[in-house]
Write a protein that binds this DNA or RNA. Structure first.
Lengths: 341, 341
DNA sequence: CCGCCAAGGTATAGCGCTAAACCTAGCATG
DNA sequence: CATGCTAGGTTTAGCGCTATACCTTGGCGG
């Protein structure tokens, strides 16, 4: 069916290797005239190299895995703010003539399997918690450039790209403190899920301490990153902690649920309670009032991931194996001064 | 580095083909005792088959492409409601032991290249307009099972999965008419982009006609599927057509922008103007008031796409090569009776 | 005039796997 | 006893490509 190197070689009256060299741009070995003749035939015949044959012979696949957790039989958990990163990764990699394989991972061993089976040159780990990354051993990932996103494992096998979560939390909390809030709650998922939440929590605590505000563990709530859980939290918050005037959350979707819950409990935002989200999802700008939130540098994240991976593939590792990207506070309508007593 | 069939064969004292047969579950050829011995060694040594070698030798890759338009150097255009479909596709395919390759397509020839280079068994075309699909010729796709999503090309080379766009529009428009609206505008992107919008438009027209409501082309506006364009449209609508009391839009995000624009122009939803969206995106439930919209069967879409593809791969094509999935109207808070005069 | 080198190739040997044809007991059958 | 069949393998011949070693020229310095 397909045109192969051999066909081209026969038509051009040269050896197969010469065609291979031309197709792969190995300039040194071929005269300009031959090269042009071959290229013309390649175009004419619509020759497309076989990636599997290449990968087999060259022991490099120019394939990068995009590994995403898949809980059991359920669908992939690509949250909306991750989608953008995926799109950007694909573009960057395509520019470098790499391809992306999307793979859900439900058991730990599947990471290894995917890497080995497809002979992946690299992989991006999206949304895995640090434990999974720490469990990867050198035996698992021989020679594969692994980039973990938003992890705080210090596993030297994995390159890491993340936002400055500590700094983002500082920004948000400082903003609330600056507006005059003193009873500021923290809502986010369990720490164990990923170091990200812990870093944000630590940023929050640090700012409280800086301003001499006593830390009250009661104001820290474990809330999943969903609208429903945010809603439930918002409903009970005024009852359980009527003195809370502001909430820092670790996700926009949670914040939006929270605001709806507060409304259901008769509290207005930002009149009675201020809310700050995290991620600056598109949707943050679509709700009313528009959400004050912390924005991550998504394009930067994708670009850094690719850069780190390419550096490792090229063997030029640099000292900094973990990159932390800047964040910014986006002030919109959900954070204001606390209500006058 | 990797363990190969040969290693296992040597250790088990059998030929390489026997191991291959065991690994691939070709029961007939191997005794149970041998099979178990081999499986044990396979487990012990952590053998993982090489996908490239398989794909080369077997002329089938168990790889499915997910082809998405990429405009020039820009990032992939996976809209949020598409992401869910992607996740579901991945899961379904993984269950069947297929893998997914995500690939942005910026030039027409790239579809062919991707198919051939990786020896894809199948591909899902996401978000391409009908023209692109019509341009695919048999030469391009020899033997590849192509499934186009949301297209209305009648190209026999492509299997097609879509929602009942005509019916969805009927549902929405009928709902508005039922509430008493007579001046109902239609807002969506240009028809040329995809047959989807045209089908929705036709559904809208049909219901108007059914109820003896004259069709006014002035009430049809070309608005891109973005918040910004919806906003702009909402701002100018009351000025240009003060008598319009309802708008049917082809996308939630557009509808949400529209509502904000109407508010800016001093019109309230649904008090002054009713709005119906399309897609039932998550965000439709997060805005205030919650958006009345048409829901598509996303899981069904993914499942049908995989089913059609597997049927074609197995050679059991059925007559219906295009599947149309049911839609449902989700009544929430943005559609009500027209204001009393 | 010889040795040597660079330029421009070619020949060979796989990469790891599978499809297909082939082999060989051992046993039942007519 | 020749025949055929089946179970349980083995052998052979690639799939399309790349790495590596090798082979020719012709030109040039010594």
């Amino acid at each position: 069916m397909g045109v192969t190197l051999k066909d081209i070689a026969a038509e051009a009256g040269v050896s197969l290797m010469t065609v291979s060299n031309v197709v792969n741009g190995k300039q040194a070995r071929v005269s300009a005239a031959t090269r042009e003749r071959i290229m013309r035939i390649v175009k004419e015949r619509g020759y497309v190299p076989s990636a599997s044959a290449r990968s087999l012979a060259a022991r490099s696949s120019r394939l990068v895995g995009l590994l995403v957790p898949a809980v059991g039989e359920s669908s992939l958990t690509i949250d909306p703010h991750t989608v953008e990163v995926v799109g950007m990764l694909e573009r960057e990699l395509r520019r470098l003539d790499y391809h992306l394989m999307l793979r859900g991972i439900s058991r730990h061993g599947e990471i290894t399997e995917a890497l080995r089976s497809w002979n992946l040159d690299g992989a991006v780990l999206l949304g895995f918690n640090d434990v999974v990354i720490d469990r990867l051993t050198a035996a698992d990932v021989g020679g594969v450039a692994l980039v973990a996103m938003d992890s705080y494992s210090e596993n030297p096998l994995a390159l890491e790209v993340r936002s400055d979560d500590f700094g983002g939390a500082e920004l948000a909390t400082r903003h609330l403190v600056g507006l005059g809030h003193r009873r500021i709650a923290f809502a986010g998922p369990a720490f164990s899920a990923t170091g990200v939440v812990r870093r944000r929590f630590e940023g929050y605590r640090k700012v409280l301490a800086e301003h001499g505000i006593g830390f009250d563990p009661d104001l820290v709530s474990e809330v999943e990153t969903t609208h429903a859980d945010g809603l439930a939290y918002g409903r009970r918050l005024p009852r359980e902690h009527p003195d809370v005037t502001a909430v820092f959350t670790t996700a926009d979707i949670l914040a939006i649920g929270l605001i709806e819950g507060l409304a259901a409990a008769g509290r207005s935002v930002p009149g009675d309670v201020s809310v700050v989200g995290y991620d600056n999802a598109d949707l943050a700008a679509y709700v009313t009032p528009k959400l004050t939130t912390v924005a991550q540098d998504l394009p930067g994240k994708a670009a850094e991931a690719v850069r780190l991976m390419m550096d490792r593939l090229a063997g030029r590792d640099r000292p900094a194996q973990a990159v932390s990207l800047d964040v910014a506070l986006i002030e919109r309508g959900t954070a204001g001064p606390p209500p006058a007593r």
